[in-house]
């Protein structure tokens, strides 16, 4: 089957999974949670197959490369990383309702990749600067890191949704009434925010390091303060601030939830916003 059809299917299945998670959150019946998880796994399998097929297709065209080389491919991989990491976390933590706030991000990334104007879904040959194995490790670690921050962001949103829903339970209590009662307790959210942020931080660190190594080989300078590099550092600093505030100043709950949202905004700016900033990479004006 053609990979683009499979990507369409994966998008659709992610949406279905989101709807099931939503039912699980509102109705509270376990069956919806199980359906949602199954759908997410199927969607992930379909998308993985599509990625592999696209990879193979690029070789058939004689310009073979890992499908991680332009905006379209990275966006699709972002969705894949979010679902993959989320399912791992769900499997370890048995929290089903967080998917309600994470799956839509994956779905939106897939949808955006397929309909956004100016998105080039064609397999393109690699320009020389991108012909490096460091590109693969760099993109994979960055986007897995972004996925970790996305999950933390989802948990941060739940935190505020619970507050808005009038949830007045103490940190460890499970709510018994109100429409937010099936969401995780504040304490669990706090732990998940910490875990996914820490994971994201390590992966982003790895991503920045591999990116520097690649830059070092490609244009002889491991750091040249171009907007993308600088924004990845800004994002990294925001999460470093967040971790210190937690560890040393004892921030918990609402403040951490707010930080996940600020951090995620910075992630999005690092990924998409920098394209609108002035400045070129130094190797272009040599």
């Amino acid at each position: 089957m053609k990979y683009s059809i499979l990507f369409g299917w994966a998008t659709f299945i992610y949406f279905a999974s989101f709807v099931f998670y939503l039912f699980r959150t509102i109705v509270g019946k376990d069956i919806w949670g199980r359906l949602a998880t199954i759908a997410a796994w199927i969607g992930l399998a379909v998308q993985t197959a599509a990625l592999l097929l696209r990879w193979k297709a690029s070789y058939d065209l004689g310009i073979g490369h890992v499908p991680l080389s332009n905006l379209y491919e990275s966006m699709v991989f972002f969705a894949w990383a979010i679902v993959f990491l989320y399912l791992l976390l769900e499997w370890r933590n048995a929290q089903k309702t967080i998917g309600t706030f994470v799956m839509p991000v994956a779905f939106l990334a897939m949808a955006y990749a397929s309909i956004a104007p100016g998105m080039n879904a064609q397999i393109q040959p690699l320009i020389p600067a991108l012909q490096s194995n460091w590109l693969t490790t760099h993109v994979v670690s960055c986007f897995l890191g972004y996925a970790g921050f996305t999950i933390a962001f989802g948990c941060g949103l739940i935190f505020f949704v619970k507050k808005i829903g009038g949830d007045k339970t103490s940190a460890t209590e499970e709510a018994t009434g109100g429409w937010t009662k099936h969401l995780p307790s504040f304490d669990n959210l706090d732990r998940l925010i910490y875990q996914s942020t820490a994971l994201g931080f390590v992966l982003l660190t790895l991503g920045i390091m591999t990116g520097s190594i690649w830059a070092h080989y490609a244009w002889g300078s491991y750091w040249s303060w171009d907007p993308k590099e600088t924004w990845s550092l800004i994002t990294w600093l925001i999460y470093a601030i967040m971790l210190h505030a937690r560890f040393v100043r004892g921030w918990r709950g609402q403040r951490m939830a707010l930080m996940t949202i600020i951090g995620f905004a910075s992630v999005l700016f690092t990924y998409l916003g920098v394209n609108y900033l002035p400045g070129l990479h130094s190797y272009l004006n040599g």
Partner: peptide
């Protein structure tokens, strides 16, 4: 935390000002 925030803010400025 203050230093990290200042460094981050200066970096932001460095990407918006040519």
């Amino acid at each position: 935390i203050a230093l990290l925030i200042l460094i981050a803010l200066m970096s932001v400025a460095g990407t918006f000002i040519p």
